[in-house]
Nucleic acid binder design. Sequence first.
DNA 1: CGTTGGATCTCGGAA
DNA 2: TTCCGAGGTCCAACG
Lengths: 261, 261
Amino acid sequence: MKYKILEKPNCEEAYDLVKEGLCKKAMITLFSCCKIIYEGRALSQLDFGERLIIIKPDGSFLVHQEKKVEPVNWQPPKSRTKVNVHDNELFLESYRRTPKERLEVEVKKTLFASYSVAKDYAEIELAGYEKDMGDMIMKKPYLIEEGFKPTAREYSTEHGFIDILGKDYDGNLMVLELKARKAGTNAVKQIKRYLSDFENPENDYLKDLGAEKQKIRGLLVAPSINEDAKELSEKEGIEFVSVTPPKELKNDKKVTLDIFK
Amino acid sequence: MKYKILEKPNCEEAYDLVKEGLCKKAMITLFSCCKIIYEGRALSQLDFGERLIIIKPDGSFLVHQEKKVEPVNWQPPKSRTKVNVHDNELFLESYRRTPKERLEVEVKKTLFASYSVAKDYAEIELAGYEKDMGDMIMKKPYLIEEGFKPTAREYSTEHGFIDILGKDYDGNLMVLELKARKAGTNAVKQIKRYLSDFENPENDYLKDLGAEKQKIRGLLVAPSINEDAKELSEKEGIEFVSVTPPKELKNDKKVTLDIFK
DNA sequence: CGTTGGATCTCGGAA
DNA sequence: TTCCGAGGTCCAACG
């Protein structure tokens, strides 16, 4: 059977349903009054209350309260779920190693329980974040300014990776820090740190980049910038360029291309 | 009615159930073949497949595939859910402002649908992270070393907040950076940044702290440290002290106290 | 494996 | 409201 639903199952019925669901690699849901203990990276306990329990075929284990996007307790994929009955109560246990973590759910009463084998072969297509922004700037450098030429991406320095490195029309070195969302003071400080790498005479970045006697410009590239960051960037001589990450799905492109065939 | 479950509801039945669930501020779950579009901070699309849809009474909207802990699509609390029927298909829409975001779910076929009004008054108690560690060190400074005296917490500097500031037995200034998990190189760099604030003669932190001619010690406090970070800390003269965040629940204490009454 | 860094991060607290 | 940092962050990419 592809799925099963039980209304107010008793302890044994719920046990059988979960067992069957696990065996069939199904999505299992229980709406139950339960008490939860977690032990692992941290430690938590949650007294009895009605919650939605989800066990996924990949081993993920979620307990959702009626508020918030995030589960109140969970276990990551590849965790192992065990089911037991003690004293006419259902116990669900999920554990994993590295790190060692254990979740124990004591189920007092279940309003309904279900399992269902999901057919889902689609993958989400997502666009509109830092990576897309970088791709776009590499392809359309004029979005930064006329004459800008990117020379490197993910350029490694002592203080981390510079998102994009390039040169302006006059050959000056340009250090670009990208943010897909509103930029804060941290982004400005990050650029300052990169620039300090170049200022340090011990480093021979400049020679490597053939920009020994050139000016070095630090640019913050983001859709917008907050007031503090704006102030700081002006004070520190960091330029701000407003660029919004492209929101374009591959499928959209395909569709467009198909239309033009 | 406190809850309702429908097996293979048709479009109108599912519509009525969702409407009723929203009205009653219930947790709503649907296991449906659906297609999803999201527009907002980013942009996404997900073709038809069977997924678990959850609508919470706080306005949160989740769509879970059979893998991962995180939902494939979601809307945060306080979003508004709208339900519609078009051409014998159910449409769920969740939207919010600031930022403007919209999630649209086209439901082709529903295996089962439910709503239930949850009674859950319990709140999770969680222990074992940075805050607990800070509390513990302020209370038991000898865990750092004999003679250590914390003088400030969340001490503000140009480069951010120092977790704990204090003095050693000889009156030297101590800068403590806490990490509840294994510390990496970033933690060491963070301390270096704080120390550079003190070295900068423009700042008068030293005078404020009455430690003008004292040594300044940087300490990384964490349960453990990775190899890279260990190397860097030794090179930079940052000391490492192993402290594990306490895993103690308030309730445990209460229980203990109750027992002793 | 462990490490690194982004995320529609989420969530909570403070200004 | 915005901002900022912690998180059992999760997650994917990379060494």
